[in-house]
Design a protein around this nucleic acid. Structure first.
Lengths: 150, 150
DNA sequence: CCTGCAAATGATAATAAGTCTCATTCGCTA
DNA sequence: TAGCGAATGAGACTTATTATCATTTGCAGG
């Protein structure tokens, strides 16, 4: 059994929730998926594996994965919320091109601790850090930002 | 004429857009509004001033204000997008309580330049910085997070 | 000051992410 | 293996935001 599956199983038992076939399939899909994904993409991924999991179940399961600490919300674009699984993904910030949508990830490093301390100084116990830079990448600047965005 | 109105007028002329009564009213409402607001709140504010501006116009005008640099997107909650006008609001980060929704603002200070440089090192010209910490504030932690969120 | 036209507006339909409902099915514990 | 409460699917619902289109309005030029 993979480690994330064990973690998930323990979490679910602690929470008194059941591990159904659908939830297992979602977990596998999430961990197959290196990089960001949104609910719609995950849904397609499951369909192409031949899994029949409804969107409702996806929307119901993702909060469980987040709560278990296996998945985190990576960013909210203008349209949707994107997620990523946590393994091999240390905390990082995203740099997004406003024109073509390209995303670069940069590790937070010390900044994470700095920010957590800053939160603590204001009375908060920080649980999530969202740091996102938006601007234009070099190619889009050179092309004059005149093309249709991807 | 206020300074923001002059800036707006110049921006609109440069852009070949017209300054209608509605747009003027929206501008005034935005600058009356110290702190965050979302579209719905702005709409109510305008109604209570006796201005008849449709939601459609609001949704069409806010991007112009953002493009002009007078307003920026402050944060996206789970439900809506919140904005704030730029005057007297140096760049800052938000610390949000996941339970009661309380928001504290902290100035970014040097960190803004650090982040811009970081973006530049990856080939991006950074135009927006979104930095948000989420966690529990002290009162909510002490109350055990058991109450209904505000 | 008046005219004409492109741009702006309001009302409302459309879209789409996400949530809720409820009858049916399925994990799990005993 | 049975039984119960939790989970599921299908689709209705909600709500922020965008698009449509007939009508109105700002404003440049005469």
């Amino acid at each position: 059994m993979t480690q994330y599956r064990r973690i998930f199983a323990e979490f679910m038992k602690r929470r008194g929730a059941k591990i159904t076939h659908g939830r297992g399939a979602i977990l596998e899909a999430v961990f197959d998926n290196h990089g960001h994904f949104d609910v719609e993409e995950l849904y397609e991924q499951l369909k192409s594996r031949g899994e029949r999991v409804s969107l409702a179940t996806l929307y119901r399961t993702i909060p469980l994965l987040v709560e278990s600490g296996l998945v985190r919300q990576a960013m909210r674009t203008d349209a949707t919320t994107r997620y990523e699984h946590v393994w091999g993904h240390p905390r990082h910030l995203h740099i997004v091109c406003k024109h073509c949508g390209k995303v670069v990830e940069v590790e937070l490093g010390d900044m994470a601790e700095t920010l957590r301390t800053l939160g603590r100084n204001h009375g908060y116990r920080v649980e999530e850090i969202t740091l996102c830079l938006r601007g234009l990448c070099r190619p889009c600047r050179q092309k004059g930002e005149s093309d249709v965005p991807a």
